[in-house]
Computed example of a mutant assay.
Amino acid sequence: MSSKAPEHLRDEGTRSQVVLAGAVSGLVSRFCIAPLDVLKIRLQLSASSLSDPLSHGLSRHPTGVLALARDIFHHEGITGFWKGNIPAEGLYLSYGAAQFLAYRSTSQAIEDFTESRGYRVPGAIKSFTSGAAAGLVATTVTYPLDLLRTRFAAQGTERVYDGLVASVREITRNEGFTGFFRGLSAGVSQVVPYMGLFFAFYEGLKTPLSTVSLPFGSGDAVAGITASILSKSAVYPLDTVRKRLQIQGPSRTKYIGGAKIPVYDQGVLKTLAQIAGREGIKGLYRGLTVSLFKAAPASAVTMWTYERAIHLMMEAPVSVLEDRE
């Protein structure tokens, strides 16, 4: 990193260190919360009462999260909770790297721009703007992996794709390049305010919680959990819309819940209105409880792993990831 970098950013690591720490944090986080992610997606794709069958070929009718978990285990085995894990690991790894790099780069750009003009941007505004930019960049770059993760997680006992390579080939052939970006507008509409709020809450809470005594050694985990719950709840309906849009296409009826999901082809706002009109407001919040249980540990693990990874790399006697002039 250039020797001209602002002094207050020197303790945040080099670009390479930030990318690696972000990637590691995403990878670890994904492995820990994969089962909850599958449960959340299945619930979001339940377009009617949970007392109705959620897929073809299931003899049981799950009526809640625990019943759904038992049903997956009974019909699909323990591996059913890690469906879509390969594209999801790629998603979390690349998303984490892109997110932290974009966040750091935007924060530094804002500070360089404002300090050269003799004024400073309030911390909350800088955090919100940097977080929103990080979410926008990371979501757009990694969206095809997000779509594949959703489609594999939505597969029940009836397989839609024979594998990752086959899925890419079939989507390209049947839906074209744009098929990999179904629901991107909902994803961007969700992630920009989500990441903006998340980083604003996180940065605001990290300092006052830094003195909290925890087994992990700091208040990073608590700040991450609180920030995640608040921001996730605010934008959750858009996440439901994104999941519904991601399974649109020629194979829609083959996914769990897909037969009950209508065709959505009139944009994000119209889809929101359709879901609310057909299923009530609660339809927009299906799986929120599981999502919060997922988001809290995911964010805590992500932020804790990131802080530890960047610290370890910076404390190393000789860094092979140090940026050159």
Score class of each variant (00 low, 15 high):
127 S>H: 14
127 S>K: 09
129 T>R: 11
129 T>M: 07
130 S>N: 08
131 G>S: 07
133 A>T: 02
134 A>W: 00
135 G>F: 03
136 L>N: 06
136 L>H: 04
136 L>Q: 05
136 L>T: 00
137 V>R: 00
137 V>Q: 00
137 V>N: 02
137 V>L: 07
138 A>T: 11
140 T>C: 00
142 T>L: 08
145 L>S: 13
145 L>D: 03
146 D>L: 13
147 L>T: 13
147 L>D: 05
147 L>S: 02
149 R>K: 15
149 R>G: 11
151 R>D: 02
152 F>M: 08
152 F>Y: 06
153 A>F: 13
153 A>I: 14
154 A>E: 04
155 Q>R: 06
155 Q>E: 14
156 G>C: 09
157 T>D: 13
157 T>P: 01
157 T>E: 11
157 T>W: 05
157 T>C: 08
158 E>S: 09
160 V>I: 10
160 V>C: 11
160 V>Q: 10
160 V>T: 10
161 Y>H: 05
162 D>E: 13
162 D>F: 03
162 D>K: 10
163 G>R: 01
163 G>E: 07
163 G>F: 00
163 G>C: 00
163 G>W: 04
163 G>A: 00
164 L>Y: 12
164 L>C: 09
164 L>Q: 04
165 V>P: 00
166 A>H: 15
166 A>S: 14
166 A>D: 15
166 A>T: 14
168 V>C: 15
169 R>A: 10
169 R>C: 04
169 R>F: 08
169 R>S: 15
170 E>P: 04
170 E>D: 15
171 I>P: 02
171 I>E: 12
172 T>D: 00
172 T>P: 03
173 R>S: 15
174 N>W: 07
175 E>N: 11
175 E>S: 09
175 E>Q: 05
177 F>L: 13
177 F>G: 06
177 F>I: 15
178 T>G: 12
181 F>K: 09
181 F>I: 13
182 R>D: 06
182 R>I: 05
182 R>G: 14
183 G>M: 11
184 L>E: 06
184 L>K: 02
184 L>D: 08
185 S>W: 10
185 S>E: 09
186 A>H: 07
186 A>S: 05
187 G>A: 04
187 G>K: 04
187 G>Q: 06
190 Q>W: 03
190 Q>M: 08
190 Q>F: 11
190 Q>I: 03
191 V>K: 03
191 V>A: 09
193 P>T: 04
193 P>C: 01
193 P>R: 01
193 P>N: 06
194 Y>G: 06
194 Y>A: 06
195 M>P: 00
196 G>Q: 13
199 F>H: 14
200 A>N: 01
201 F>S: 08
202 Y>C: 07
203 E>D: 15
204 G>W: 14
205 L>V: 12
207 T>K: 13
208 P>N: 08
208 P>D: 15
208 P>F: 14
208 P>C: 13
209 L>I: 11
